[in-house]
Amino acid sequence: MTDNTLYEEQTAQKLLLWEKELLKPPSMLERTSKSISTRINTIIPDKVHQALTTAVKGIVQTSLFTMDYIPKNQPLRGASLADCDIRAEELLSLYKKIAAAEGAGTGAGGIMLGLVDFPVLIGIKIKFLFELAHAYGYSTTNYRERLFILYVFQLAFSSQSKQLRLLDIVKTWEEKAGSLPPKSDQVDWRQLQQEYRDTIDFRKMLQMIPGIGAVVGAWANYGLLDELGQTGMNAYRMRRLQDKDASYNAD
Rank of each mutant, 00 (worst) to 15 (best):
T5R: 01
T5V: 15
Q13I: 11
Q13H: 12
E21P: 05
L23G: 02
L23V: 04
R31K: 13
T32W: 02
S37D: 13
T38W: 13
R39V: 00
I44N: 08
Q50C: 08
T54W: 15
A55V: 15
K57R: 14
I59S: 12
I59L: 10
L64T: 04
T66G: 06
M67W: 09
I70L: 04
Q74F: 10
L76Y: 09
G78E: 08
G78Q: 03
S80P: 03
C84G: 05
R87D: 11
E89M: 10
E90N: 12
E90H: 12
L91I: 08
L92S: 14
Y95P: 07
G103T: 01
A104Y: 01
G114I: 00
V116S: 14
D117V: 00
I124K: 03
E131W: 06
A133D: 15
H134M: 06
H134L: 07
S139T: 10
T140H: 10
T141M: 08
F148M: 10
Q154A: 13
A156F: 02
Q163Y: 06
Q163T: 11
R165S: 15
D168W: 09
I169Y: 13
K171P: 07
K171H: 10
G178D: 15
P182F: 07
K183Y: 02
S184W: 07
R190I: 03
Q191Y: 09
D198L: 01
G213I: 02
V216E: 02
A218K: 00
N221G: 01
L228R: 07
L228M: 12
Q230K: 14
R240W: 09
L241K: 09
